[in-house]
């Protein structure tokens, strides 16, 4: 459904992303991995239309720059690393805004079925009890769950996660990834996520893009990409064994239910 062709990003004479091409199909969970400064977030920023790029990004065969903003939001949803918030909106109000792309223009009101999507998203993320609470009073994990619920209410065909659990604890990471895994299985949608933890990529991903210094080193199914040879060439040390050891932490209880 998504295809990037010869994607490059330059800031002045600095090349951040150099001629990267990849494709994402239905029901795939593509993990973008690589060391710091590899250009992982740059790929995500280009796809979610935040950053300027050269090359082409096609979504269902059409250039993403030709989509109207609401049309694009119905196809691509983004969960950012951290969303700084200003005013005391309630959890419910924030999640409800996830339905914005379906409201059709500035003057029209809610479309039918919005309430069900919001309820379902609140339930999946375990936020029903907190729905009236101000987002300013939430913990980091609860706030990130609120934005996860928002993007689930948005019901995109492709979900993009830019290290959404980066500053949160292990339990939360595990719950979030298990929840998203269930979501892919239920809805048949696709996910692209940037991750640092290779064991996390291996445990949940179906495909991977291994990046290094703005270039794509390897891409394809997880076992073909995260090989000892590939990883050693990128990280300059043997991280393969370490990844396999860490893998066990993700293995039990992938129920996808978050505590309330």
């Amino acid at each position: 459904m998504l295809e990037a062709r010869n994607l490059s990003v330059r800031y002045g004479s600095l090349t951040i992303l150099d001629n990267v091409s990849f494709a994402v199909g239905d029901k795939q969970w593509v993990m973008i991995v690589g060391p710091n400064g590899a250009g992982k977030s740059t790929v995500v920023n280009a796809v979610s239309r935040g950053a300027p790029y050269t090359g082409q990004i096609l979504l269902d065969g059409k250039d993403i720059r030709k989509y109207k903003s609401t049309e694009l939001a119905r196809k691509i949803g983004v969960l950012a690393q951290d969303t700084p918030v200003g005013y005391s909106f309630s959890v419910e109000e924030v999640v409800g805004l996830g339905r914005y792309a379906y409201s059709g223009g500035m003057l029209s009101s809610k479309s039918s079925g919005d309430a069900e999507f919001v309820e379902r998203a609140l339930e999946l993320t375990g936020l029903k009890e907190l729905r009236r609470q101000s987002i300013l009073t939430l913990s980091g994990g609860e706030k990130q769950r609120t934005f996860l619920a928002q993007v689930l209410a948005q019901d995109p065909e492709l979900l993009i996660l830019d290290e959404p659990t980066n500053h949160l604890d292990l339990v939360f990471q595990k719950q979030t990834f298990a929840l998203i895994k269930n979501w892919i299985e239920e809805t048949g949608r696709s996910v692209i996520s940037v991750v640092h933890d290779l064991s996390l990529a291996k445990a949940y991903g179906t495909h991977a893009l291994l990046m290094h210094r703005g270039r794509l080193v390897a891409s394809g199914e997880i076992p073909d990409v995260l090989t000892r040879e590939n990883l050693t060439s990128v990280y300059d040390m043997d991280v393969h064994d370490w990844m396999r050891k860490m893998l066990s932490q993700w293995e039990d209880g992938q129920s996808g239910n978050l505590p309330v």
Partner: peptide, 24 residues
């Protein structure tokens, strides 16, 4: 007044507004 919903999105965060489909 017709921009009330968009302003809500901006008041949360401009990036979030873009993500949910507001023509920022």
């Amino acid at each position: 007044l017709s921009c009330a919903r968009e302003l809500n999105a901006f008041a949360i965060s401009e990036d979030n507004a873009r993500n949910i489909g507001v023509n920022v």
